[in-house]
Design a protein around this nucleic acid. Structure first.
Length: 598
DNA sequence: AGGCGGTTGGATCG
DNA sequence: CGATCCAACCGCCT
């Protein structure tokens, strides 16, 4: 490890000449032809916001404004994202979106424009407004998620039929990820190392565009469907949510830029940042930047973040390196976007050529306990509670709960875990979420399935007294530190003094980790022998028999598609009476962002 | 065919 | 705190 770090330190970002050449080429290709006012004065354009909820580094915005007498910035409230059976969005992420829209609207108003929030499916809404408003040009940011690809190709067809020019721009990712794949002989890299090499070869991303400062072409409010009452940003209640949002993070470009600058100011911290050594239990101030939700919605441009990092690295030549550095985090995002948008069924096991076809158990009771933070392991349950309340938890906390659900303890499918994250995380991102679940379940990318996180000792390593647990599981707030990670081991009188009886006020553990993890490792070994990824069938099934002792009866993996229903060690009753205190009063003690150690 | 590296394991030893 | 074991995976590179 040390050696590889040193090797990478010695090889800084290279091929500047190539970078600059590429930058010039692409910049030239997308420079608006300002001069041609030929189609000019009468022309009306739509700027369609989907992600990319910002004014800075927004090439679609610049394009829409170029040569247009009127520009209509729209956002469409697509019912698709509210269909519960399809793609659940929890109230915290929806609220984050609404806040982002509100912020975007204020910024647009400041430039003499405004955001028009339209209701309906894009396929219905767009043809109507293209016609009603006499639109000549439709501009938007490219989105490579499967749903967006289908939606946009339909919209493109409709626009073409209506004689409307469609202009699409790459600005959600650092690069045109299709170009990266082309540059890699048409194949998306499967390892981070290979991806880093590819990126090094291609050169630096384009410099971000500045936000416009001059007034934008106006919205023609006399046209049909643009009364204030029809185009305002709705509330979460109007979107049909029954429970109020509880996240502490506020959406919007303004907030994103503030957060970015706050973290970039501490240049030593930025330069020494190494993700694996950040503290998952820090909660007064999280140990990482929490810029992910802003990147997800495009409140923050990845290219701006990247540029600001390079600025800091120039001040600190001995800065940390990918994959662990902050820049490395952006490259992980880019890697998963690139691979994910070129892999079918990336969010599923079935039909996913990079995903190992493991037959996981099905057990609704265990799954529910995990989802609801009622496993009886306080570290796991606190993390799941933070997820539900804040819509965010540290990356390593995600590791811990994902490992617990899948290969570590419960042996349940990563797909169901992914769906819970997809609902609850404010930064839930199609490609990144799926990729990380495959990673943690050792279904792709990662194969050392015998490295299992302990639901007891992992959190303890960072937070001996359990402040994180006390914060998110107040029912355990008076449990002595000695027992807080394993409260079932506390003597009865200790439980009584702490006002927390295990099995009554807080659940007993649903599995015995020592036994469960041992069994899981054995089953993973068998699964690895018996299965392959969803792609080409590799070799023969080999012997599927567990090698060692008869640690598990169900060790031999059935071929894909078969459902095993083996259940786990005795699951105790989980009557949890613990109250959720969604509103916590002022947080106290401990925290501050930690310097990344080494 | 074999060695190496792999963003983030745990327990135990010194 | 660092090394070693645990049991031993994968893809990639040579």
């Amino acid at each position: 490890m040390l050696r590889s770090v040193q090797r990478k330190y010695a090889a800084p970002l290279k091929s500047q000449a190539l970078n600059q050449k590429l930058n010039r080429l692409v910049a030239a290709a997308r420079t608006p032809r300002m001069a041609s006012t030929s189609s000019g004065q009468q022309s009306r354009s739509i700027l369609w916001f989907r992600k990319g909820l910002r004014l800075h580094d927004n090439p679609a915005l610049r394009d829409a404004c170029t040569g247009s007498a009127a520009v209509f910035p729209i956002f469409i409230i697509d019912p698709y994202f509210l269909q519960k059976a399809n793609y659940k969005v929890g109230v915290n992420r929806y609220q984050f979106l609404l806040e982002s829209l509100t912020d975007l609207n204020s910024s647009l108003i400041g430039l003499g424009s405004q955001l028009l929030v339209l209701r309906g499916t894009p396929e219905e809404v767009l043809p109507k407004v293209l016609r009603d408003w006499g639109i000549k040009k439709l501009c938007y940011e490219i989105d490579t998620e499967p749903y967006a690809k289908v939606r946009d190709s339909r919209v493109d067809d409709m626009a073409r039929e209506a004689g409307v020019e469609v202009k699409k721009h790459w600005s959600h990712t650092l690069y045109d990820t299709d170009m990266l794949v082309r540059e890699n002989k048409g194949k998306a890299p499967l390892t981070m190392q290979a991806f880093e090499k590819l990126v090094d070869r291609v050169g630096q991303p384009l410099a971000p565009l500045p936000a416009p400062t001059a007034r934008l072409p106006p919205v023609d409010v006399s046209l049909p469907g643009i009364k204030d009452t029809e185009v305002g940003v709705p509330t979460w209640q109007e979107m049909g949510y029954k429970e109020a949002p509880t996240s502490i993070f506020k959406g919007g470009e303004t907030e994103a830029l503030k957060r970015l600058e706050h973290y970039m100011k501490d240049t030593k911290w930025v330069a020494s940042f190494e993700k694996p050594s950040t503290d998952p239990t820090a909660f007064i101030e999280p140990a990482t930047t929490v810029l992910s939700p802003y990147l997800k919605f495009g409140c923050l441009s990845a290219r701006l973040f990247h540029q600001r990092l390079l600025d800091v690295y120039r001040l600190h030549p001995k800065h940390s390196q990918p994959p662990m550095s902050l820049r490395g985090q952006l490259l992980w995002r880019e890697f998963f976007y690139t691979l994910g948008s070129h892999t079918p069924n990336f969010d599923r096991i079935s039909g996913n050529p990079i995903c190992r076809q493991i037959t996981w158990d099905s057990n609704p009771e265990l799954f529910k306990a995990w989802r609801d933070g009622a496993t009886g392991y306080p570290w796991i349950d606190a993390a799941m509670t933070q997820l539900r309340e804040w819509g965010w938890m540290h990356h390593l906390a995600r590791h811990a709960v994902a490992c617990f659900l899948t290969r570590g303890d419960l042996y349940l499918s990563w797909e169901s875990g992914k769906e819970v994250f997809e609902e609850l995380l404010i930064d839930a991102d199609f490609f990144i979420n799926s990729a990380n679940w495959m990673w943690l379940s050792a279904s792709a990318f990662f194969a050392q399935y015998f490295r299992v996180y302990s639901p007891i000792t992992f959190g303890k390593k960072y937070d001996k007294d359990g402040a994180y647990i006390r914060k998110f599981l107040p029912v355990l707030k008076d449990m002595p530190a000695k027992y807080i990670y394993e409260p079932w081991t506390a003597p009865r009188e200790v439980q009584q003094r702490a006002n927390c009886i295990i099995g009554r006020d807080y659940p007993a553990p649903i599995v015995d980790h020592a036994a469960a993890s041992k069994e899981c490792i054995a089953r993973m070994g068998a699964a690895y022998k018996a299965t392959n990824t969803g792609g080409a069938a590799k070799a023969s099934p080999a012997k599927a028999a567990p090698s060692g002792d008869a640690s598990t009866s169900a060790a031999a993996e059935a071929p894909p598609k078969k459902k095993a229903t083996g259940k786990r060690a005795a699951s105790t009753d989980q009557d949890n009476k613990r109250q959720k205190t969604l509103e916590e009063t002022v947080t106290r003690k401990k925290g501050g962002k930690k310097e990344a150690g080494k």
